[in-house]
Design a binder for these strands. Structure first.
Lengths: 345, 345
DNA sequence: TTGTATGCGTTATCAA
DNA sequence: TTGATAACGCATACAA
């Protein structure tokens, strides 16, 4: 790829590079005639400033890094959609990394991130990540970072989450109000902030309604279908099996649904199911899936906005960082409500 | 973010930058002792070469651009997953752009792409794109480009598609074999290569089985739910409505399913439905969705591999470019087969 | 074996 | 109003 440079223009017009540079940037200390000449030539030969040269000079890249566990997860692809949207309007480019839920991979990604000289980082932690030194180091060195969804208390910066506690509380309470007595909760990785918050919401709802906690009904589970099958089987090996399952993620809910079908356990008759998800197809599942919706797109947008706030004000650091809690919404569909329950609502 | 540079190391060790540079790159013309000294210092202070400086020098960026219509579309997010996988192993970074199915946006994206000096471009065309001059220009200037999924005949380069004709043919024939007589086909944007190929497959299957083509059963449709509702209503306003719908994409199939439910039209009893999709949840829909699976991940991987082939051999251009056709697979589920049909298969 | 000088494309500083 | 020069970080041709 050949690119025309300022030098080329200068040579062609018999000017110095500095004059051309100034003319291009519309400097007022340049002769209007010269300016026009340069502008026209640049236009004609489609001059585009070399952003790499600018990056080197200004020591910034006008790009931001995004590390997510998996791109191919609707929550994250929606979030990235939102991030790209904001970045596009700011003239920034988005560089994508996947941790594949691996701590090692996440650490390597952060190394790439720094070596790439991105101007900021958006990250949602991997399920394996317990130690966040790699991020702390970056942050201490002055890299603007915003955490979203899967966050950590140990990093003092802006964060964006959905109201996991409330969503979880509402979901659980919904199950209680429709008459369920033994409500299981299947959470994702126990390390994750989202898991902890959702477990708290679950427990709080039980407590409010004076339902004793049965430890055997609280499970942590990986996303693999096999893992889910094991957990379901454990739950049903219980002396008094659960009559409802509240899962802490979209993937888990899908896995449960699939396993329950396989085991010939009827939803919602034998067991109610409610997810924590954002799947567009949730309404089309059999049965349609009750769920707590997270605003993935908005979370992405908000995170990106906060990051650009930080990037554009690196000199004056905010005195205090904030954690933004976005709304969740309980959507009741068929997987959690029987015909006979409906009056009760 | 402060970064240690070669200059810093040189100063600290009282060497010249060239010596440090050579030592770092393991040059054989350097004193082993000096080399060790430099290496240790670099290690200790976590020296990372500045890729921007390298880019400027070598006129390449070790990054590739990816332009897709929407990240938040399972097909593309899976493809990007594959792309990222290959790029990661090659030490390249992936810069993401969305065209949002808009031609204008796609053109702007290609401008950003060039200005960013990416080393290559992977693109799947927007639904509005009929003119590909913007891509031809880039390609003529020497930018390695690989098209995937939504391709164009007018650009002579490597392309990766799934076998749309065969998939479409098999899907249609499956409907014929299960006794359907009036099979509608709902395609996406008529400009898209995938639409054309899938329509061909559909027509070929009808022809093979001597079923006359009814133009009123061939529809083109945008992804919006409202657009789909209009098309479904048109189809059912027909004197003899269809008894099967073969949709050319995942989103269309979902929209159809949802609309048919709303209209109280039973699938598969009143009408069979089959999609062209890769949704992981297809099996969990009500009814479970018969579909033609595209290997999105593999398509992404293959495209990226081809792109790196081109990037790493820019000097010797391949004499001929190839279009790689990846397998598709018909998966029969409940949306296309009634109990009574099953013996017939 | 090491050092000096140059250039990648751009802009800022200083001089004219 | 314009030009010469240096600098960003690195690699390399050339010199020592």
């Amino acid at each position: 790829m050949e690119h025309i440079t300022i030098k080329d223009i200068a040579k062609a017009l018999n000017l110095s590079t500095s004059t051309v540079s100034r003319a291009l940037r519309g400097s007022h200390e340049i002769n209007p005639v010269t300016k026009l000449l340069v502008m026209e030539y640049a236009e004609k030969f489609n001059y585009q400033p070399n952003p790499i040269a600018l990056s080197l000079k200004e020591n910034k890249s006008r790009s931001i890094g995004v590390i997510v566990p998996e791109i191919d997860n609707p929550f994250f692809s929606q979030a990235i959609n939102g991030i790209e949207d904001i970045a596009y309007n700011k003239g920034y480019q988005v560089v994508i990394f996947q941790s594949h839920e691996s701590y090692e991979r996440e650490v390597i990604n952060t190394q790439h991130i720094t070596s790439r000289r991105v101007d900021g980082l958006l990250i949602s932690l991997s399920g394996q990540t317990t130690n966040v030194e790699h991020l702390k180091n970056l942050h201490d060195k002055g890299l603007p970072i915003v955490l979203f969804d899967r966050i950590s208390d140990e990093i003092n910066t802006h964060k964006v989450i959905s109201d996991n506690f409330e969503g979880s509380f509402n979901g659980t309470e919904h199950l209680i109000k429709t008459g369920r007595k033994r409500i299981a909760h299947i959470a994702a990785s126990p390390h994750l902030s989202i898991s902890k918050e959702r477990v708290k919401g679950y427990l709080a709802a039980l407590a409010k309604h004076n339902i004793p906690v049965d430890e055997s009904l609280l499970k942590y589970c990986n996303y693999g279908l096999q893992d889910i099958e094991v957990v379901i089987d454990q739950l049903f090996a219980n002396e008094t099996p659960p009559d409802a399952i509240f899962t802490a993620s979209d993937r888990l809910a899908l896995g449960c649904l699939s396993t329950l079908k396989k085991r010939n356990i009827k939803v919602p008759e034998d067991i109610a199911l409610i997810g924590f998800t954002n799947l567009k197809v949730a309404a089309l599942l059999a049965p349609s899936l009750s769920t707590i919706v997270q605003p993935a797109l908005d979370m992405g947008k908000r995170s990106a906005e906060l990051l650009f706030d930080l990037i554009e004000n690196t000199s004056k650091l905010p005195k205090s960082y904030r954690t933004f809690k976005l709304y969740t919404e309980l959507i009741v569909r068929n997987s959690s409500v029987m015909k006979s329950d409906e009056e009760r609502l």
